[in-house]
Write a protein that binds this DNA or RNA. Structure first.
Lengths: 339, 339
DNA sequence: CTGTTAGCGCGTTCAC
DNA sequence: GTGAACGCGCTAACAG
């Protein structure tokens, strides 16, 4: 089993300093004798050396880790974000510690507290609540903290989000063009989330360009789930006397899945002429024969901005603290040719 | 900003022991005087207390963390597994540290080394290689290690996998029943993986029940990706003179996505009569009008077994080390009624 | 009821 | 070229 510096020094007879110099490759610099070095290197080759990060962290007050608190990794977008963050961390010799909050403020707070107690050097949070725990604010001086995906506008932390307003605007316009100006419903899960609110604003604005009013086209649910999607679609079908909508938009892939399930359950099949749109993109959308719009977030741009904030010196406090970046998205179209 | 025990003791004038007893809620037990307790509690309420896990780990030689090395969190199955593991960890006051290896042995080794150096109390690995790094073997005494999802049969670590052989057998039989005994191709990504090999064995055995030979029905690719799925489907289409298969089976959702994309690209549409089957289940499969078989792994059973191995005292070494659990799966059927 | 102390393994500074 | 010693913050054993 691997040894500590102390054990190695005791068992080879050299002092910890000498051993450390050899292990850290500084034997040249401090001109350790060739044979001393050889003995120690052989010993390490045989037994291995295990660096104790706990001791290192305690001494250096630095853990070489970055925390990532994420609502839900079943959400493909967050899974990709995590992968990208991990790659960036890796390049800087940092370990990314990812913890899921499952959209639960209590779990989120616990995750944050846990990561801070572990002395993460940076903390990336995709929050599920507007509330900021006092501990977070107090940690600002020591740890870089970046909020992402949902801008609750605390003004306390740098924030990186996608441009949800423009996304909603552009996608809705695209839909309207394909539906000859006929408006359509927007099924929204987790309606209180800032990103969803922005998407709704975009949707409304685009709708107003072709028609006045129409707030009744927006359906709301508090959670973002398949069930919420089903419920909203059921409401639509009931309202239309048993008919599915000719077109509709969903705030997330889960809502879309629920909506489609419900159409299938009620109508028996999904008319391939129904115009569909959804936020977030997924390969599985390829499976639909329908015309589909979706919004793909720019993960690379998001993560590089996150890292910029994370590694930025926190000296320029007042102004920099509130820095907020909005990243452009991409509209993806499927099966639109035949229309 | 939050204080350490030492600071609190110094600034309140009480000793570290007294402070600690109050903070840890043991003031009753050790009959700390009411006013002493009040003073300390007030102080903590005002400034907060920040436990330094690095120091704690160093002292206790225990980090209250469990490491999880996973090939790819874009894979919905692993994302669910992570969520379930996190819940179990949470119940035991452990923090789950998840790191992705991206199916790269080098990254996997680095992740393992990194987590071990951080003193994780347990380590769950979904390996992407048969090779076992020496460090892992050496750590066995100190840290519980469990291998999951892919059984490379090292015989060195307890292993938890789904019953891929039976899954392949049962799903293939189901398909054959629906196709009136007509056999069909099996598109396999990551063919060298033990779990895929088991799936292939199940497939072959079921095929032999209706027909001799037929190894040529199995298509292989080394990676598990959409592209691999497309390539294999293209081979099938070419082989059949431009026709898509009447039925086929895929080793994963990614392969399925690629296969369907390719049919769409070549044929223009996906005939809803095509009989489809795939390993791993996903809500998005609801979107297909086709009859679909899929295999859903039992995440709850998997994770509880993993935890059993993780927390089992490693005393019963020789035999227990090789312990291996195979968990039953569930066959999910969609849109089969009309046939 | 409260206080003192040793030491976990590492990094650093200074001394020979 | 090499060694000794201190302290990071916490825990636990022991001492009043």
């Amino acid at each position: 089993m691997p040894k500590t510096v102390d054990e190695i020094s005791r068992e080879t007879g050299f002092s910890v300093t000498t051993v450390r110099l050899v292990i850290n490759g500084q034997s040249e610099k401090y001109r350790i004798s060739r044979q001393t070095r050889q003995i120690i290197e052989d010993y390490v080759a045989l037994y291995g050396y295990s660096l104790n990060h706990a001791a290192r962290s305690l001494k250096l007050n630095r853990s070489d880790t970055v925390g990532f608190v994420v609502p839900d990794l079943s959400n493909a977008f967050f899974a990709h974000l995590m992968a990208a963050l991990e790659t960036l961390c890796h390049a800087r010799n940092l370990l990314l510690l990812t913890v899921a909050s499952h959209e639960d403020p209590v779990l989120e707070n616990r995750a944050v507290a846990s990561l801070l107690a572990r002395g993460v050097d940076g903390l990336v949070i995709a929050p599920c609540q507007a509330e900021i725990q006092p501990q977070l604010i107090k940690s600002r001086g020591k740890t870089s903290i970046v909020m992402i995906d949902r801008d609750f506008a605390s003004g306390l932390f740098p924030t990186v989000v996608s441009d949800n307003f423009s996304s909603g605007l552009v996608m809705t316009r695209g839909m309207l063009r394909k539906s000859d100006g006929k408006t359509f419903p927007f099924l929204c899960g987790r309606a209180e989330s800032p990103s969803i609110r922005d998407r709704i604003r975009g949707f409304s604005e685009a709708c107003q360009e072709v028609e006045e009013g129409g707030e009744e086209r927006i359906l709301l649910e508090t959670d973002d789930s398949i069930e919420a999607g089903s419920r909203m679609m059921q409401r639509l079908i009931d309202r239309a006397g048993g008919m599915p909508p000719h077109a509709f938009m969903c705030s997330s892939l889960l809502i879309l899945a629920g909506a489609l399930q419900q159409i299938k359950a009620q109508i028996g099949r999904i008319d391939p002429a129904i115009l569909i749109s959804t936020f977030d993109d997924h390969t599985m959308l390829d499976l639909l024969p329908n015309p589909v719009f979706s919004i793909r977030q720019n993960v690379k741009a998001l993560t590089s901005k996150i890292f910029e904030y994370l590694t930025r010196p926190r000296a320029e406090d007042k102004k920099a603290a509130c820095a907020s970046s909005v990243i452009a998205t991409e509209l993806v179209c499927r099966n639109l040719e035949s229309r």
